[in-house]
Design a protein around this nucleic acid. Structure first.
Length: 769
DNA sequence: GTAAGTCGTGTTTTT
DNA sequence: CACGACTTAC
C-alpha cells in the first residue's frame, strides 16, 4: 500500500497489525487520527468489507472528518458503508431496527437534556418532592451516573455509598424518582442519551440472536478516545469484540477530561489486563508542536500522579516559549488578546507574520460564559470570529418548538414535545388544562395526546370551550401524523410550519429577534432539504421526517457551515478544542476558581483540570499565550481570584512573563506594593484550605466588601499563603490557602462601612495531591 | 388564559 | 447577569 509510506515505523506497525486486540497509546499530536484512518483504509484495501468495520468516535465531527480522510485514501465506494459515528448515534441506529424487542417503536424519541430535566421535574412534583432540594440537573446527574455504571433502580436502592451521598444532599427518594423516570420514558416511547447505550446493551444481553448477528457483522471494532469511555461503553465494546477479539482502542490517559459524564480512565489503564495478548503501540513523537510547547505541557502533566509512563517529544524547532500575561480584569484581557490577534493578523502583513490567517488562531477558555468579552472586543476591531458551543442552533427556542411538532407527529406519545408546543402558537390551552390532562394521563396510563383526544375515556373535566380547543389540537396532530407517514421530510416540514401556524406566528413578529427567529426556522427547512438531497445522492429515494429527527437529536455541533469560507478566529471551550490544532492558541482565564473550576475540591478533580490545561496547551503548534485577570465580572458581581496554581506547574524555562499593555490604574492601587510578576504566582500549591461564609450582607455591603479587597489582598502575599474571596448571595466566601497552619490562625476581612470582622480559621486538610 | 413585570437564585465541561 | 418562578393586571 503506497499510503503506508506516509507513516513512521511505530505508526505503520499499529496500522498493519490488524488481527487481535491492540492498544494504541497516542500522545498529544502524535498522529492518532492518522493511525486510525490509515488502519481503516488498510483494512479496506485488504478486502475487508466496509460493513464489517465499526469505528466509534467521541464526536460527530471526528467521525465525519475521519470518513472524509479515509475516502481520500481508498475509492469512496469502498468506504461508504463503514459503521462510523459516536457511540450514541450508532446505538440509536441499531436500536431503531430492533426497538420492538425492547417495547419501543422504531420511531422512539431521543430526549435531550432539557427534555429529561423537564420530565424529572414533573416526576418529582408527582411524588411531592421539593424541587429546591431535588434540583432537576442534580437528580439527572445522579441518575445518569447510575446508568453509566449499569446500576438499576433496585441496585441503587441497595448501594449504601450512593444512598449516603444522596442523604448528604438531602435527597432521600432518588430511587423512586429514578424508577418513575424510567417508566415515564418508556411510556413516552422515548430514550435519554444514557438509555441509548444502556438499551443497546440490554438488547444484546437479552437477545442472543441480535448479539450474534452484530458480532458477526462487526468483525473489526475500533474505538477512538478510549480514555473517555464509560463503563457501559466498555461493556458494549467488549461484548461486540468477544468472539473475534479484533479490537483496537486508541487513546491518551493524559487527555482524559470527561469523568464528569462518567468516563472511566480505568478502561484504558486496564486494557492489557483484559486482553493479555494485546499488542501495545506507543506513539510518543509529537508532530504538531514546537519543543517548547511540548516541554511546557510535559512539565505540567508530570505533576499528576496517575498516568501511563510515556515520553512525548518533539523534533520540530525549539520555538517560542509560552507567554503569560496578567490583566486588570476580564475586559482588559479580552482587549489584550484582541490586540495581539490584530497585530498578528493578515490585514497587517509584517515581514515574518504575513502567512498567518485568522483560521490559524484560537481563543480557548474554561467556560462558555467567558466568550462574551472576546466577542465584543473582536467585533470592535472587525476581526471575524466563530464561536463553537453555547446554545447551538438546535437548542434555540424556535427550532425546538418546530422540532417539537415534528416529534409529536412522529411519536404521539412524546409528552415533552407536547408540553413544548402546546403554548406556541397560542391556542388557548394553558396551565390549568394541562395540569388536568397530566393528572388523567398518569392515572389512566395514557399519553397526554390520548387524554386530549378522548377526554371522555378518562373523564377529563374541562368546559366545552376548552374541549373544543383540545379537539382542534388533536385533529391537527392527527393530520400531521398522517402527513409524516405519507410525505418526505421536506414536504412534511414545510406543510407543518404552515398548518400549525408556526410560520405565520413567527412572521408577525417584526422585531429584530423575531426576524432572526423566522430566519432560523427557514434555515432548519434548508437543512432538511439538504438532508433529503444528500440521502438521494446515497441512493435513498424516500426520506421520511423520522430519519431526520433521528439524526438531529444527536447533532450538537453546529459547525456544518461549510459554505462559509471566511477566515475566522475560533472561540471555544477547551473541551470543544480536543482533537483540534491551531498554530496560535490563546488560553484565557488562568485563575483559581475558574481554571481549575470552583467546583473542584478532590485531588482527582484537580488532576482532571490539569489534564484539561494539558489538552489546551497541546492544541498549539507554534505559539501559546496564557493569560489571567485579577478581577473578573462573574454572575453580575466582581470576583477576585489569584492566578491559577497550574501556572506554577509549568516549568519556567518554557514560559516567559510578559508585561501587560494595560497600565495598572493609579486610582485603584489594588496591588500597589507588589509587582505582579514573580511573586504573583509564586505561591506554592496549597495543602490546607479554609472556607467560611460571612454573615448576611446587603448588596450595599457587598460592594463595600469588594472595596475591602485591598485589605485582604495585602495579607495574601505572605510566603505560602493565598486568599481568594467571592461575593456569594448575602455574604462573602473567603478562601484561604496555606502551607503551614497553627491552631489559632486568623484572617481579617475588612468591610469598608461596617468595620472589620476577624475570622478564626479552622482548616480542612486537603488530601495530598 | 395570557402578557408583562418582579423577585430570587444559581451558576462547568457534552453525547 | 440571565433565567425561571411567581405575582399582578388585563
Amino acid at each position: 500500500m503506497d499510503f503506508l509510506d506516509q507513516l513512521n515505523d511505530t505508526q505503520r506497525a499499529a496500522v498493519t497489525c490488524t488481527e487481535g486486540p491492540s492498544l494504541i497509546v497516542a500522545g498529544a499530536g502524535s498522529g492518532k487520527t492518522r493511525v486510525l484512518t490509515y488502519r481503516i483504509a488498510y483494512l479496506l484495501s485488504q478486502g475487508v468489507p466496509a460493513g464489517n468495520i465499526l469505528a466509534l468516535t467521541f464526536t460527530n465531527k471526528a467521525a465525519r472528518e475521519m470518513k472524509e480522510r479515509i475516502m481520500r485514501l481508498v475509492p469512496a465506494n469502498d468506504a461508504r458503508y463503514l459503521w462510523m459515528g459516536t457511540f450514541h448515534s450508532i446505538c440509536a441506529k441499531l436500536l431503531r431496527r430492533d426497538a420492538d424487542k425492547l417495547g419501543f417503536t422504531r420511531d422512539f424519541t431521543i430526549y435531550d437534556t432539557a427534555d429529561s430535566k423537564s420530565l424529572l421535574k414533573a416526576v418529582c412534583k408527582e411524588r411531592g418532592l421539593d424541587d429546591k432540594v431535588y434540583k432537576p440537573a442534580a437528580v439527572l446527574g445522579r441518575i445518569s451516573m447510575a446508568k453509566n455504571n449499569l446500576i438499576s433502580p433496585a441496585e441503587y436502592g441497595k448501594n449504601n455509598e450512593l444512598l449516603r451521598q444522596d442523604r448528604e444532599a438531602r435527597m432521600y427518594d432518588i430511587v423512586a424518582v429514578y424508577e418513575l423516570y424510567q417508566a415515564r420514558l418508556k411510556a413516552a416511547n422515548a430514550m435519554d442519551f444514557d438509555d441509548l447505550l444502556l438499551n443497546m446493551l440490554k438488547l444484546m444481553n437479552e437477545h442472543q440472536d441480535v448479539l450474534e448477528q452484530l458480532q458477526q457483522m462487526f468483525r473489526y471494532v475500533l474505538v477512538d478516545e478510549y480514555q473517555d469511555t464509560n463503563y457501559v461503553q466498555y461493556l458494549l465494546v467488549s461484548r461486540l469484540a468477544e468472539p473475534q477479539q479484533n479490537i483496537c482502542v486508541v487513546g491518551d490517559d493524559a487527555q482524559s477530561i470527561y469523568s464528569f459524564r462518567g468516563a472511566d480512565i480505568r478502561n484504558i489503564l486496564n486494557f492489557r489486563r483484559q486482553y493479555p495478548n494485546a499488542r501495545l503501540f506507543k506513539l510518543e513523537r509529537n508532530y504538531r508542536s514546537t519543543q517548547n510547547i511540548v516541554n511546557a505541557a510535559n512539565s505540567l502533566i508530570h505533576k499528576n500522579i496517575h498516568q501511563i509512563e510515556k515520553t512525548v517529544f518533539s523534533e520540530k524547532e525549539e520555538g517560542c516559549p509560552l507567554s503569560l500575561h496578567a490583566y486588570m480584569d476580564d475586559r482588559a484581557e479580552a482587549n489584550g488578546v484582541a490586540e495581539q490577534i490584530r497585530s498578528l493578523s493578515p490585514s497587517r502583513p509584517s515581514r515574518e507574520k504575513a502567512q498567518i490567517s485568522y483560521d490559524d488562531i484560537a481563543v480557548l477558555y474554561r467556560t462558555n460564559a467567558q466568550s462574551r468579552a472576546f466577542e465584543g472586543e473582536l467585533r470592535k476591531r472587525n476581526i471575524p470570529y466563530r464561536i463553537y458551543g453555547g446554545t447551538s442552533f438546535y437548542q434555540r427556542k424556535e427550532i425546538k418548538d418546530t422540532l417539537g411538532y415534528f416529534r409529536l407527529a412522529v411519536n404521539p406519545r412524546d409528552n415533552e414535545a407536547l408540553l413544548r408546543i402546546i403554548g406556541f402558537p397560542g391556542r388557548g390551552i394553558g396551565d390549568t388544562t394541562m395540569k388536568k390532562v397530566a393528572a388523567n394521563a398518569i392515572e389512566h396510563h395514557r399519553s397526554y395526546l390520548e387524554v386530549m383526544r378522548y377526554p371522555a375515556e378518562t373523564g377529563l373535566d374541562v368546559n366545552s370551550a376548552t374541549m373544543k380547543k383540545l379537539l382542534g389540537f388533536t385533529e391537527l396532530m392527527a393530520q400531521l401524523h398522517q402527513l409524516s407517514e405519507e410525505t418526505d421530510a421536506y414536504t412534511f416540514a414545510e406543510q407543518t410550519l404552515h398548518i400549525t401556524g408556526v410560520q405565520s406566528a413567527l412572521a408577525m413578529d417584526v422585531t429584530a429577534e423575531g426576524i432572526d427567529r423566522a430566519q432560523n426556522v427557514q434555515e432548519l427547512l434548508n437543512a432538511i432539504r439538504e438532508f433529503v438531497a444528500q440521502r438521494q445522492e446515497e441512493g435513498i429515494d424516500y426520506t421520511p421526517i423520522t430519519d431526520f429527527l433521528g439524526e438531529v437529536s444527536l447533532q450538537t455541533d453546529q459547525d456544518d457551515n461549510l459554505t462559509d469560507t471566511t477566515e475566522r478566529v475560533t472561540l471555544m471551550t477547551v473541551h470543544a478544542a480536543k482533537g483540534l490544532e491551531f498554530p496560535i492558541v490563546f488560553i484565557a482565564g488562568m485563575e483559581e476558581n475558574l481554571f481549575p473550576s470552583q467546583f473542584c475540591v478532590k485531588p482527582s478533580e484537580i488532576e482532571e483540570e490539569r489534564r484539561l490545561l494539558y489538552v489546551a496547551i497541546t492544541r498549539a503548534m507554534e505559539r501559546c499565550y496564557l493569560s489571567y485577570a485579577r478581577q473578573r465580572f462573574r454572575n453580575g458581581q466582581m470576583a477576585f481570584n489569584s492566578p491559577s496554581r497550574f501556572l506554577n506547574d509549568i516549568d519556567r524555562r518554557y514560559m516567559e512573563i510578559v508585561r501587560t499593555a494595560t497600565p495598572i490604574q493609579p486610582e485603584r492601587p489594588r496591588w500597589s506594593n507588589q509587582t505582579w510578576g514573580e511573586r504573583m504566582y509564586a505561591a506554592p500549591t496549597p495543602e490546607w484550605r479554609h472556607e467560611e461564609k460571612t454573615p448576611a450582607a446587603t448588596s450595599a455591603t457587598a460592594k463595600a466588601i469588594s472595596g475591602a479587597t485591598n485589605n485582604i489582598s495585602s495579607a495574601i502575599w505572605k510566603e505560602g499563603e493565598r486568599v481568594s474571596h467571592r461575593v456569594f448571595g448575602e455574604g462573602v466566601v473567603v478562601r484561604v490557602y496555606r502551607d503551614e497552619v497553627t491552631d489559632n490562625d486568623k484572617i481579617e476581612v475588612n468591610f469598608d462601612q461596617s468595620g472589620t470582622k476577624t475570622l478564626l480559621l479552622t482548616y480542612a486538610k486537603l488530601e495530598r495531591i
